[in-house]
Simulated scan of single mutants.
Amino acid sequence: MSATLETRTTATWDQYRGRLEEYFDRTALDAWAQLTSDAPVSKIRATVRAGRDEMRNVLLSWMPADLTGLRILDAGCGTGALAVEAAGRGADVVAIDVSASLVNIAQERAPTDLKGSIDWRAGDMMSPDLGAFDHVVAMDSLIHYPTDDIVDVLGTLSGRTRRSVVFTVTPRTPALMLMLAAGKLFPRADRAPAIAPAHIDALARRLAALPGCSVGRSRRVQGGFYTSQALELIRC
């Protein structure tokens, strides 16, 4: 990554990261804690919960069934469901999120009899201090960023990864764009920072050009108010 590109990306990354931290820690913590639990939710939020559960299973299925001895980064771990699943399969997981409050909930919910381990952290998933990994998972943690930043972030993370980076973005579809436009017409004070839909084919072409990488599987999960595209970036 060039010095100019790195500076631009860092400035944008920090700007959006600050918004997300405020949203999850101050505005919508209770709502997200409820959404990621077994508590009753509205029909709209139930579709989001179901979509997230399905997507988490997709990403986990793209890694080995036995993760014993493998080091995994859960980049944007939220309340920890994916990290717990991976550690249950033997992985040593570094689970990090920009929201310290969500990480606290994750720690409280996590079982203690896992086959592997979880190192819970609050901070920036891009920190080089996190070290290298066998696999990186970024579920719904890049959906608020422009495509240029997504490519730069994945290029950096793939350079620290031995096997694969599996992640999600929001696909740019006519239905979703209408939904987002309606949301802008009727704003809410507790609404999350804006989602940045991506053109999937164009994104895949740019990722395929990253040094030492190839694009693997792709899968869309769509239902109700949840739409997300999973992609696999494989280290060659």
Rank of each mutant, 00 (worst) to 15 (best):
R8Y: 01
T10E: 15
T10I: 10
A11R: 07
A11F: 03
T12P: 09
T12M: 15
T12L: 15
W13V: 05
D14W: 01
Q15S: 13
Q15E: 09
Q15T: 12
Y16M: 15
R17L: 06
R19Q: 09
R19S: 11
L20T: 04
L20D: 12
E21S: 04
E22H: 03
Y23V: 02
Y23G: 11
F24N: 06
F24G: 02
D25N: 14
D25H: 07
D25C: 13
R26Q: 13
T27Q: 07
T27W: 01
L29K: 01
L29T: 10
D30K: 04
A31C: 05
W32T: 05
W32D: 07
Q34F: 03
Q34W: 02
T36G: 12
T36S: 15
T36K: 03
D38L: 08
A39T: 11
V41R: 07
S42R: 10
K43E: 10
I44R: 14
R45I: 03
R45G: 00
T47F: 09
A50M: 01
G51T: 08
D53T: 12
M55E: 08
M55S: 13
R56T: 02
R56D: 09
V58S: 05
L59P: 03
S61A: 11
S61R: 12
W62Q: 09
W62S: 04
M63N: 00
M63Y: 08
P64M: 01
P64Q: 00
A65F: 03
A65D: 14
D66W: 13
T68N: 02
T68G: 06
T68F: 02
T68I: 00
G69K: 02
R71I: 00
L73D: 11
L73N: 08
L73W: 07
D74G: 09
A75S: 10
A75M: 04
G76M: 14
G76F: 11
G76N: 07
C77I: 04
C77T: 10
C77Y: 00
G78C: 06
T79Q: 11
T79C: 11
G80K: 00
A81K: 06
L82W: 02
L82Q: 11
A83N: 03
A83R: 08
V84I: 12
V84T: 07
E85D: 14
E85I: 05
A87H: 10
A87P: 09
G88R: 02
G88P: 11
G88M: 10
A91Q: 08
A91D: 05
D92L: 07
D92V: 06
D92I: 12
